[in-house]
Design a protein around this nucleic acid. Structure first.
Lengths: 151, 151
DNA sequence: CTGCAACCTCAACCTAACTTGAGATCAAGC
DNA sequence: GCTTGATCTCAAGTTAGGTTGAGGTTGCAG
């Protein structure tokens, strides 16, 4: 028995907005960016699949984690087989994002610890500050000693 | 003995750019926003104090921590006595920023843990997802059950 | 078969944080 | 005193992520 697509499975944009919490204009914007690809009625109105709700919700979540729409697109396009993502795919994507969170936490912890050092030494010195010189690219450009703190 | 201001203590914008790693245009932009207030020569050119180097460096650091220029302005204006910040003041400001980092780390940890739950259940469900519903404002708007995952 | 809410497109606008360019002036070395 | 690099102002452009509005269609309920 082949699955038929009942009209109840085709969701207009307004309902998508209600269901996802996004604005209608934002959803249209995302379509423009290629993040969703609704079908159209004969009258040119957008109709979304139910799976698009998950897709859009995922965008929201990923954005809260600091990913840009471009990065989100990239992650979602990284799906196997280029098919519409199912629950297992979402797991894989979620795991990727989890890794990003971990990395970000580590970064912040490093910064915090450096800042502790700075508070301790009262520095914020261009030469020495671990926060200001993340990659330690000290003295890369320009001549002479940089006397920062003598005030 | 009153301190005199030797001309060596008045730094032109180009040198500020070299010393802070900022672009000349960015420094002018910050002045526009009220974040630095250089004096002017008789010929209307900007001249910065050495302490402005620290000020600008601090902007850079605070930005890396995700503060907007507006927030940075606010933090810096919060200084006691409205005077040009000294090493002790920078410590106070740094401590404030440290707190912000802590908060952000906690947020990310919560998100990560929620995401772990989602990966476990494969959800990303609008009804249940703790990430998607940070404030737990479930069912706030609109009718009926929201069948998200059944596909 | 009609009314009207929901939908459509396209262009313009918005904030943040800058950059770029034009055209003019300054300052310092020779 | 002239040249040349550094500055100056002011307007416009840029990217991200949308929103707003005008003017015009669609589609479903009665």
């Amino acid at each position: 028995m082949a699955k038929t697509l009942s009209s109840k499975d085709l969701i207009p944009i307004g309902e998508m907005a209600r269901r996802t919490g996004l604005s209608v204009s934002a959803i249209r914007f995302y379509e423009d960016k290629g993040l969703v690809e609704p079908v159209r009625t004969s009258g040119n109105q957008r109709r979304f699949l139910r799976s698009d709700i998950r897709r859009l919700s995922f965008i929201l979540i990923a954005q809260q984690l600091g990913l840009s729409l471009g990065e989100i697109d990239e992650v979602m396009r990284g799906l196997p087989y280029g098919r519409t993502p199912n629950a297992r795919d979402w797991k894989a994507i979620s795991a990727k994002i989890r890794d990003r969170i971990e990395v970000r936490i580590k970064e912040l912890e490093r910064t915090r610890d450096s800042l502790d050092g700075c508070i301790g030494c009262g520095c914020l010195s261009l030469e020495k500050c671990a926060i200001y010189n993340p990659g330690d690219k000290l003295g890369e450009d320009g001549p002479g000693p940089r006397q920062v703190l003598a005030d």
